[in-house]
Simulated scan of single mutants.
Amino acid sequence: MNATQDSRSPRAVRISSAPEDLAGLGPLLECVGASVGDVPALLALAKDVGESAPKPGAGRTAFLWEILASVTAVDVAAGRILEPHLDAAAILAQAEGAQAAGVEGPGDVPDNFSDGIPFDDIPFDGTWGVFAAEAPGLTLEASDAGGRTLLHGSKPWCSIAAQLDHAVLTAQLAGGGRAAFAVDLHAAGVTFADPAWTSLGLREVPSGTVHFDAVPAVSLGAPGWYYQRPGFAWGGIGVAACWLGGAVAVARSYQDALLAAADRGREPDQLALAHLGEIDRTLAGLLGYFARTAPRIDCGELSGPGAWSEALRIRGSAAAAVERIQALVSQNLGPGPLAFDRRYGKRMADLSLYIRQHHAMRDDAKLGALTFTGDHPW
């Protein structure tokens, strides 16, 4: 890959928006490219983007996904930082909307939790994360203390928590079940364990355990609301949009390498072209899937039980596309760029770790269980 191609202006990933709308992403993508590896700068960009980015289901879901995909195509870690900030903003908006509509969630709020959501108590400014993962031996519990909700215990897989201001997280309830809460990560009683992050992928986005000792939190909906809301599925597709952006970036690097070789007199052979063709049809199909799904969300079609099935389909398709494209490109380009091209090597390592948020056959088993009950389009 020659220096001219490697340094050209970053390109947006188009799902369905008009080219002139995507052109407006140019300054953002230039800033992302200039901020690679600088987490405070990327968090500042995430905060800026969050002030104007559309919410899923509000009419411009495709553009939201294009922002996520385009940022990730510039730098996978940047997309990994941006996505949870935008997801947290969407969750808070959904919780506020549910309260305004008098819909708390699928279950009743326990007597020891307030009926309302005191959004005036939530500092919306600053940077946000979303921590919903769990791990054996670690439990985070929410309890009532004189009308206040307090968090006790530990939460695993909290990415760059020490550098964030706030988080939406899930916690166990004394009466059973889990619920979502908003928490100030600067509050007394919050401590951050050393993540001992040894990964070569997403090196600047370490995920570790956060400990909570009687930390005040704001309840976001009834038990189960976080998982039952359609926005849970929409947010899952947002992560897949980031994976899409990473796949596009790997594909572009492959095309650029073939063009650079052709400029030096080495035309691609049939195998290289066949793999480029497979990459093209894989990405074209995936882009079409996103383009069809976004308006279904915006018109309310994916607001019921079928939303999670569709999320599992599109996430599985995106993860498979990433792994296949990475394999094809690695086979064709060989060890050279992995050994000597810092940006290419970083992208491949970052993306390989990021897509492990997809649980492969376990997620397919969940989809199969839903399909078994008749939840499928065919």
Rank of each mutant, 00 (worst) to 15 (best):
G33E: 09
E30F: 03
A182I: 05
S352K: 09
V103Q: 15
L353G: 01
L283P: 06
G33S: 09
D194L: 09
A321T: 01
A294K: 02
A319I: 06
F290K: 00
Q172A: 12
R356M: 12
P123K: 12
D165C: 11
A100S: 12
M348T: 09
Y254P: 00
T127A: 10
A222E: 09
A101H: 10
A171E: 03
G306Y: 00
S207Y: 06
G33I: 04
G221R: 06
A34R: 13
G245C: 05
P27D: 05
A217E: 00
A233T: 00
I325L: 07
K155P: 08
S303D: 06
W378P: 03
A217H: 04
L164W: 09
Y344K: 03
G316D: 05
W234F: 01
G107H: 15
E104C: 13
A274I: 11
K155S: 11
S114R: 13
Q228N: 06
Q228G: 08
E267R: 13
L220Y: 05
C299F: 05
H376A: 12
T72R: 07
D87W: 06
Q163D: 14
P118R: 10
G245S: 07
A41I: 12
A307M: 01
G304R: 06
Q172T: 13
L286G: 03
P305G: 12
G224V: 04
S207M: 13
M1S: 14
P230Y: 08
Q326W: 00
G288Y: 03
G126C: 01
G59R: 00
A222R: 06
G107E: 15
S330P: 00
R342Q: 15
E104T: 14
I297A: 02
N332T: 13
A53F: 10
R362G: 06
L276D: 03
A193Q: 12
D363K: 04
A142S: 07
G236C: 03
V250D: 05
D38R: 14
G105C: 09
A77M: 02
A320D: 15
